[in-house]
Amino acid sequence: MTRRTPYRSLRGISAVAALLAIGAVGCSDVSDAVDSATDSAKKVARQRSVFSLDIGDCYNPSGKAEGTAYAVEIVPCDEAHEGQVVGEFAIDKGKEYPGDDEISTVADNRCPVEAQKYAPDTWALDKGVSLFYYTPTKESWATGDRSVSCTYTAGKGTFSGSLDTTKTLKPAQVTYLKGANAIYEALWANQPEKDTVEADLPGYKAQAKAVEAALNAHVEGLEGIEGTEVGKLRATLTEAAGNWKKAAAAADADTFYLAYDSAFTGIDPNKSVAAREELGLATTVPADEAEVWAG
């Protein structure tokens, strides 16, 4: 997860400056100036404080790439835009500001969960669109700000259309995505800080147990979905769940590694492509996930 809080500068003077210049130019220049003034006025009218962002808002940032956020330009989602708010929640950490690191940790953990409620199929996201978030600063915390806005934002360029797909998904698609997303959430949310199993065997066993539980729930959900490829995937994931169970019960690091190799390979996203196609879901494995399982 990357943390970015772009600086948002208010641009209330732009339209006024453009309009005052019209009287001193020729006809063609007047037309250009009017167009420029219209565009500027539209941007001014669309400015909104980051404190009033709502789920579903599509927006364009203003100003520099990093810093403290103040405002964004809200735009219709069918227009090109750089980001869309896909989740929000309030941080309950008492009166004292918990610090930037603690705030980021909370957002790292919650935003993927909140975003998946709004846009469950992360494979369907435009290339280069990633999850970011706006969080309170120490100064805004002192004024009562506790809100985190989770957004999908384009790293470069723009995208168009709303990312809200929950209303168009079929029940079988929703069931599949809920189960599949839970597997990878269990994997990454429980990733131990230590780089080796030897350094934290209990931590890695706990991760394996969480993944096994998510897999079992997903397999159970798939039992109610018809389809040849879905059936094949269910068998593959059932085997994977068995290997994660072995890893969770490992008595030592060597035993863990023996089970983990097959367990991790068993949840390779590429193994689900055929089932996704059968269900009418996106079939291109996101680049970051493909890189992980490519070794």
Rank of each mutant, 00 (worst) to 15 (best):
S149H: 15
P6M: 06
T5M: 08
D252A: 05
A251K: 14
K170T: 10
W188V: 11
G87I: 01
A214N: 10
Q47A: 09
L281Y: 04
D252S: 07
A248D: 04
T158Y: 12
G63R: 02
E102D: 13
D54S: 14
T135W: 04
D288S: 13
G280L: 11
A189C: 07
E226F: 00
E229G: 10
L222A: 12
E239D: 15
P120S: 12
A182C: 03
D261M: 11
K138L: 15
A294Q: 09
I91W: 09
V25E: 13
A249D: 05
V197H: 03
W188T: 10
L237D: 01
W141L: 15
D121M: 14
E73C: 00
E226Y: 01
S160P: 00
E185Q: 14
A180Y: 00
I225L: 14
A287M: 07
W293N: 06
T196M: 13
D288L: 08
L279H: 01
G224A: 11
Q84D: 09
L177P: 00
A142S: 15
A115C: 08
K209C: 00
K42D: 10
E239N: 13
C150F: 12
E291A: 15
Q207E: 10
Y133E: 09
K205W: 10
S130L: 11
A41L: 12
D32M: 00
S31Q: 06
K246Y: 02
E193K: 15
F159M: 03
T236A: 14
L233G: 01
G23A: 11
D92N: 15
R8N: 08
S36W: 00
A115D: 01
G23H: 06
A182E: 01
M1L: 10
Y133T: 08
Y260S: 12
E212G: 01
W188F: 14
T168N: 13
A253P: 05
D32T: 03
K209W: 04
E82W: 06
F132P: 00
G280Y: 06
S162G: 09
W293D: 04
G56C: 08
G224T: 05
V174T: 15
A17P: 02
Q191Y: 04
G63D: 10
D126I: 02
K178H: 09
V148G: 03
P136H: 02
L281Q: 07
T175D: 13
A251Y: 03
T2Q: 12
K245P: 02
Y260A: 15
N109L: 14
Q47M: 13
T137L: 04
G161Q: 01
S31G: 05
E291F: 08
A248I: 04
T283R: 00
A214Q: 03
G227N: 09
T165N: 11
T284A: 14
G224R: 05
V148F: 04
F132V: 12
Y184G: 02
G128K: 12
N181C: 07
Y133P: 02
D78K: 10
D254V: 05
S130E: 13
Y97C: 11
D39M: 02
L279M: 03
